[in-house]
Design a protein around this nucleic acid. Structure first.
Lengths: 234, 234
DNA sequence: TCAAAAGTGTTGACAATACACCCATGG
DNA sequence: CCATGGGTGTATTGTCAACACTTTTGA
């Protein structure tokens, strides 16, 4: 704060702070987003991201965790801050800024009954309905952030089950970047990082031959990160 | 907001929102940061980033522009949002979240008298004093953001005077990335983008032979950006 | 036995790096 | 005339995309 702001510590300068979550999931070869239909005014009946006001006693990050837990039943979800939306007129109801955060969740783990109870659904990214306020923009921004992160760090793994095959991983990256990748080259690249542990079992669901399962080696990854390794995928 | 939040539209849920500016400048081959010594409580006498509360009637971005104008006299400064700091206990005075934004300014253009009047000074990045609250973290984060942006887009130009030489530009990038670059390769790379207009005059201040001035061609840059060109420097 | 997915190997084009070398000029 | 920084050319190395090829197995 500048030196001339002593009069600013006044109640009338306080404003609402919200957080909205852009929740990505991956299922059936498609990137999906968790949104819900508002059941209270304002904007009753409109589609919206999941969010909440931040309480004075809680961290902004905690607020996001709280909402997501409330709706999916999940703890310990991967979160990253996307961007803060601070236009004075962005919410016609009251002055309110919103800290957007994106989450990546394993779509096989969430609590279906809980989400349905809250009127929340998974939508394919391509056919999202119009969202309330500036939430469309939030999705666009978060998606581009997800892409740039996925390009340089293997965060994509957060969206897959613990055990996954290389072709599954490839299909995820194809969904994120919306383009086909060469199977041979993708495999070589991703294995060259040496952060995948090959399992003994195979997944036979997608082919007769079957594809070996792999697991992400968080420890090895941390070590490489700290020694400044550059994980450039694509 | 979730469906169970109607009671949240209550005055006691409002909190203070501030913005803090990480103001980078480039001078004398060094990256510098504009900070100031607080003259009012709390933390009187401590070094701090430049910032202000966001007024209920103004955009968060506007607030940053306002403060920077107040202290440097500059309008139309390059700004980018860095990150929002939302820990409940980050400011022991009052609950207050802060949206950090970094600015790049041409150090030859600012108003010296104005900054001095406000107790603000340019510090070399290497020997910054301890800053108030979580401002040290803000600087670290903004710096890493500056680096990743500078790597993929030529935002470095915002820090140089309108006319600059290739060696000057190189020296800026060396300051940003804290490592020496090969003059021949740097020149080739940066010219290969074809967004620099060569001028007729030379800068003779750094060598007897003199180096040609260049100017950034914003128009050409915009065109290339829109056609999806990848400006990867380094 | 064959279609289809998993996985391996090879190649050529191109980009990054290191570095040798010429240029211009003020002192 | 030479030290110094500006600027150009080139050889080597490494990386990436394309694609041919082999393996496996259920239907």
């Amino acid at each position: 704060m500048t030196s001339s702001t002593s009069n600013f510590y006044a109640e009338e300068n306080k404003i609402f702070v919200a957080t909205d979550c852009i929740v990505f999931g991956f299922d059936d070869g498609e990137l999906k987003l968790l949104i819900f239909k508002r059941r209270v005014a304002p904007h009753e009946g409109d589609w919206s991201l999941i969010g909440s006001f931040v309480k004075p006693s809680e961290d902004v990050d905690e607020a996001a965790q709280r909402v997501l837990k409330e709706i999916t039943g999940l703890d310990n979800v991967f979160f990253e801050q996307s961007k803060t939306y601070g236009k004075a007129d962005r919410d016609e109801g009251a002055r309110c800024i919103s800290v957007a955060q994106f989450a990546l969740i394993r779509i096989d783990e969430y609590d279906r009954k809980l989400t349905e109870k809250h009127g929340a659904y998974w939508y394919k990214l391509e056919d999202l309905p119009k969202l309330v306020l500036d939430h469309d923009q939030m999705v666009t921004d978060a998606l581009s952030k997800l892409r740039s992160r996925a390009k340089h760090q293997p965060i994509g793994f957060e969206l897959l089950p613990e055990k996954f095959t290389i072709p599954q991983l490839q299909s995820l990256y194809e969904a994120i970047f919306q383009r086909k990748l060469d199977p041979g080259n993708f495999r070589k690249k991703v294995l060259s990082f040496e952060v995948l542990k090959k399992q003994a079992e195979k997944d036979k669901s997608a082919s007769k031959r079957g594809a070996y399962y792999y697991m992400f080696d968080h420890e090895k990854y941390q070590n490489l990160l700290e020694s400044g390794y550059n994980f450039e995928i694509l």
